[in-house]
């Protein structure tokens, strides 16, 4: 059985967070540049130009791409043949604390609103996988976009059109608030809680293998959302979302749960294998 020390992951994960907070994900930046070229609305073109300029400046100068460095979300896959010495959850939170040492502290008690001062605890989701590896995936989740995320409990009769309508409803309600152009995570199936989690995982596990109907649905969602005319920053244009990512799970015969996570264009994430 392979053994790793929990404390050995602290430095690499903290470094990964620091890098991610100043370097917007390359896929998002590529799509932003494409959007700037394609957009026909002058106001949105200006907004997209400012965003691209910001992201390049942030990477060059090691500056935080956005002042909202988010609440840290960690998706941790633990191989069942791996033995971890020490406390994994404590090590992950230490990594978050260190990774956010010079970033804005955005985590507070929900009732007293007292800031924890460390940006911890992180929101951590664990999966048990086969093998003996550990994988840590990070995503910074800002409030502007997360406040606009939603779940819908549809009846099965609503079908794929119903799913597309949910996402469009969510995006329209959000309007200019979540910093469009947005990135969409859509979780379909499971239960109310699982569809919400899938909508997050869809954004993080982007290289997961997909079925043809899932890929077709992603395109349908993206086209429908871009028909809304909200545009970058809500200035009225044809690019409201940069991409849509679907993840599905079997559900009850009487349910069709749909979770929609809106992620802002400032997509900050990484994955690390141990």
């Amino acid at each position: 059985m392979r053994t790793i020390k929990a404390n050995d992951i602290i430095i690499p994960v903290a470094d990964g967070i620091k890098r991610a907070l100043t370097n917007v994900d390359c896929d998002a930046l590529r799509l932003l540049k494409q959007a700037e070229k394609k957009e026909t609305s002058p106001l949105c073109k200006w907004a997209l130009g400012q965003i691209v300029q910001n992201d390049e400046l942030a990477a060059r100068e090691n500056a935080y791409a956005c002042q909202d460095c988010g609440q840290a979300m960690l998706f941790v896959s633990v191989g069942q043949d791996l033995h971890i010495e020490g406390e994994l959850t404590a090590a992950l939170n230490k990594a978050v604390e260190n990774g956010y040492s010079t970033a804005r502290k955005s985590v507070a008690d929900p009732l007293t609103r007292l800031n924890t001062q460390t940006n911890t605890p992180a929101v951590i989701h664990y999966d048990i996988t086969s093998g003996d590896r550990l994988c840590v995936r990070f995503m910074a989740k800002g409030a502007g976009s997360e406040n606009m995320s939603k779940t819908y409990m549809l009846t099965p009769s609503k079908g794929t059109s119903g799913i597309v309508n949910c996402v469009v409803d969510c995006v329209k309600t959000a309007g200019s608030s979540p910093c469009p152009p947005i990135i969409l995570g859509v979780g379909i199936g499971g239960t109310m809680d699982l569809c919400a989690l899938l909508s997050k995982k869809a954004l993080v596990f982007t290289s997961a293998k997909k079925r043809d109907d899932e890929i077709a649905l992603e395109k349908r969602i993206l086209d429908a959302v871009n028909e809304t005319g909200i545009g970058a920053q809500g200035f009225g244009g044809n690019i409201t979302a940069l991409s849509a990512h679907v993840m599905t799970a079997p559900t009850h015969i009487g349910m069709l749960p749909v979770g929609v996570t809106i992620q802002c264009h400032s997509d900050r994430k990484f994955e690390l294998f141990f």
Binding site: Q50, N54, A63, A65, C66, K105, N115
Partner: peptide, 25 residues
């Protein structure tokens, strides 16, 4: 522009704490 914090950082020429320091950011 939301999400352009690095860009605005360069446009700020002075910063003075005025009130409620206990509120942090």
């Amino acid at each position: 522009i939301g999400g352009a914090g690095a860009l605005y950082k360069h446009k700020i020429k002075s910063c003075e704490l005025v009130a409620y320091p206990e509120l942090g950011c």
